[in-house]
Each structure stands twice: as structure tokens, then as C-alpha cells.
Design a protein around this nucleic acid. Structure first.
Ligand SMILES: [Mn+2]
Ligand SMILES: [Mn+2]
Ligand SMILES: [Mn+2]
Ligand SMILES: [Mn+2]
Lengths: 216, 216
DNA sequence: AAATAAAATTAGTCTTGACTAATTATATTT
DNA sequence: AAATATAATTAGTCAAGACTAATTTTATTT
């Protein structure tokens, strides 16, 4: 089907298409850690294959085919993450890099069998929705902890940042998907948040922290 | 660690080292479906990396390091085959190609976790022994059905040929690992074998067939 | 031993997917 | 509107890993 690089580009472009604003070569380059010149080459290649369209005004956009294929890569990625966490006992800060490789293994029925084996999970270990075989998936969570009203209580639904630095920090704070968090106070000086984790003692976290936790 | 190609060469050389006789560039080329000229390039590369030694007289030999690394690739391959068959429900003729890709995914603890998850299997679905984390493994089966005495009964322990053509044929004949086979008669004309499968009706198979079934 | 066949090697080419450096196009300031 | 900064693109290079075609080496026949 596609090369490793093509798939990684497709997925990167898909990820960027979730944010608002146009997708520039520079943005793709940054997200992959590549040089913009290399990105321009690949944009040409993927355009020829009709997976994307590039217009200086509109930036890069996935075609229907490109979108479909990208979503299937995301599906594989997230299913493998569930496998690594639930079946092999990895922690949520260790699974992304391995899934990054597993996602490229393609076989007619592999993803579907894995899906079935895992019990058709709806969300991956970071709270991201797992696309179904037909490409449909639940709407991603979007309300951040930072946006909650003081005094309100919520449940951690997903993390926006999936760097191991952040995930390990959460592990240390005993915060995971499903954790109850009460927003006790917002410090007006720097928007730091005083929170209570699972009804326990108060902890203070930064605004940046609060913006990377998605709640419901 | 190593590139995909380096790993595939290492594994191919390891496989060839199980047979007797010296390992030539041509033999490696055939086993990988590559051109001998390409093999010569890679022999140079792997020699520089001290994974093999090449001597026109002795042919290609794995160094200790090369042997160790090759065995770990084989370990991953066979563990994934068990996973695909037992957990995802694939048939034994479908798993090799997928494992061929999965084997290259490396991560400190992935193979060991998979091993544990699978219950530390001793043999893969084709009856090949699975190397342990330390590189040790059971001795492969070596007695062929064709070498059995007429009248004797044995148990299928492994298959030598793992092509899907052969495996599907076995599937059709209802022969798998563990199947009881009685060698009823050897046809002297062409060494065809008349066998009884699991005590059922007699079937005739070729000599080549008998040489690709390993029994105990 | 010479002739022939087969295997190994070399030399040169190609594709993929990166890179750097230079150039051109587009935005942003002044 | 110029000047300047940033972004995009082009041109040229490189390494990996494959290939073909030509040559050299080694084995096998006659
Ligand atoms: Mn990837
Ligand atoms: Mn994830
Ligand atoms: Mn392989
Ligand atoms: Mn096998």
C-alpha cells in the first residue's frame, strides 16, 4: 500500500486537520521533525497519488481517499495502544512510540481482529476515540479542565498532550482517565488551578496543565 | 538498532545456518528473493558491523553477536505467530507474512511481555521452538514422516515447509500439530506414503510431503 | 589441461526520502 | 511604499538498498 513515510505524513496531516487554520509545509515539517524542503517533496508525491490537495491559499487538505486512509492508520494506532496497555501491562506513557510502529502493519483483517479481541474499545488509553472499521468514530472530548467553573467537579476523559513528560507527571499525581477532579480555585495571578483529586488533598497545577486535560 | 533489511538478512543467514553446508551469497540471494550483487553489498555491511564473517572458503558465518541478534528476531517472529493464531484466530497459513513484519518492532520489553502474555509458549504454531529471552531454545524436531518405519504411528510435531500452499493442503487433510498419523505403507515405486490420519481412512501423499512433516 | 559453466564481484544506475544552501514569494514592520 | 522577516520552493547532495550488465574467479566437464 503506502510506504512508512507516506503513512506518517498522512497521519500528521490528519492530526493537523483537527486543529483550525490552514496546514502549511512548515507546520507539517515541525510536527514530523523534518525539514520543510523535504515536506514540499512529499506534498508533491501525495498530491500525485490524490491523497491530498495543495493550494497556496488553502494549504494542504486531505482528499476523501486520503482522509479515509489516514483514519485507518489512526485506528490501528489506537487499537494497538489499547492492546499494549491492557494486555501487555505497559503504562500509558510507554505505549505511543511502540504503537507508532505497529500502526504501519497492515493486513486485510488485522485491525478488525484486534478490535474484536480487545472487545471493540471506544477510546484509547489517552481518551482519544478509536475509529471504527468504517471510519466513523465518537466525537473527541474538547472541554478542558482549565475551562471549568470554580467549584465544579468533573471526570478526566482524555489528555491533549501525550508526551511522556506529561503522562508521567499525571501518573505521579494519580490522575488517569476516569479520575474525579474538583476545581477548587483559580489563582487570578497566573491562572494556576487548585484541584482536588478523587476527593483527596488539594494540589496546585499550572494553566498549561489544565489546558491539556479534557474533561466531561 | 538495525534496519529492516539488515534484520531480514540476519534472519535469513541464521535460517541457512541451520542446514548443513556453507552459506554462499547465492543461497542468501535465493532465500530472500534478491540479486546476488545486492547480497554482496549487504555482506560487506554486516561484516563491518561485526555481525557476520565472510570467508570464500567457509562462506558466511554469524558472529556471536550476529547469532544472538538473529535469535532474538526469530523469537519475536514466533511469539507473534502464536499471538496471531491463538488470540486473533488466524489460521496457520496466514500468520507468517504478518509476523514477518511484526518481528521488526523492537522495544526493550515488548517480546518478554508478549511471551508472558502468551504463557511462555515453547513452540510456535508450525512446531518451531521459540527462543527464550536468553537465546536458549528447545532442539528443533528433525525426524520426518518419510523416515518412519511402515506400520509405526507418530504425532505431527512440526512442519518443515511453511508455505501457505503446503499449510492449506494440510488444513484440508485435517492435519495439524498433534495429529496422529500411522504410516500404513510405502509405495516402492515413487516412495509415496499411504497414511491413516487420526485413525481415519487411508490417504496417499507424496514423498516430498512426507519429508516436510516432522514427527515424534 | 583446456574448455565450459556457474558463482562472485565490480561498476554503474535507480528510487526513496532525507538533507543543506540558495532563491523566490509572501507577510509584516517601519 | 520600502525594508525586513518569514515561508516556500528549487537545486543539488547523500545514504540505503535495490537493480542490471560486465567482469573476474572458482568449479566442473570434457
Ligand atoms: Mn508511525
Ligand atoms: Mn493515544
Ligand atoms: Mn521480516
Ligand atoms: Mn513459524
Amino acid at each position: 500500500m503506502y510506504t512508512l513515510s507516506e503513512e506518517n505524513y498522512l497521519k500528521a496531516i490528519y492530526r493537523l486537520s483537527q486543529d483550525e487554520g490552514k496546514i502549511t509545509p512548515t507546520a507539517i515539517a515541525e510536527s514530523l521533525g523534518n525539514n520543510p524542503a523535504s515536506v514540499v517533496d512529499m506534498i508533491r508525491k501525495l498530491s500525485e497519488k490524490q491523497l491530498i490537495e495543495y493550494d497556496k491559499k488553502k494549504g494542504v487538505e486531505l482528499t476523501q481517499q486520503g482522509q479515509k486512509d489516514a483514519v485507518l492508520i489512526v485506528r490501528r494506532h489506537r487499537l494497538w495502544e489499547v492492546f499494549l496497555l491492557e494486555k501487555l501491562g505497559y503504562h500509558w506513557d510507554e505505549i505511543h512510540d511502540i504503537a507508532e510502529e505497529l500502526e504501519h502493519i497492515n493486513n486485510d483483517t488485522l485491525a478488525d481482529r484486534l478490535d474484536k479481541f480487545l472487545g471493540f474499545p471506544e477510546y484509547d488509553p489517552h481518551g482519544d476515540p478509536i475509529p471504527k472499521a468504517n471510519g466513523k468514530m465518537a466525537k473527541p472530548y474538547s472541554v478542558t479542565l482549565a475551562a471549568m467553573k470554580t467549584g465544579s467537579t468533573c471526570r478526566v476523559a482524555a489528555v491533549r498532550d501525550t508526551s511522556s513528560a506529561f503522562l508521567q507527571y499525571l501518573l505521579k499525581l494519580n490522575i488517569g482517565i476516569g479520575t474525579q477532579i474538583q476545581l477548587v480555585e483559580k489563582i487570578t495571578f497566573d491562572n494556576s488551578l487548585v484541584i482536588s483529586i478523587n476527593g483527596k488533598d488539594h494540589t496546585t497545577v499550572s494553566q498549561k496543565f489544565g489546558e491539556n486535560i479534557l474533561v466531561e
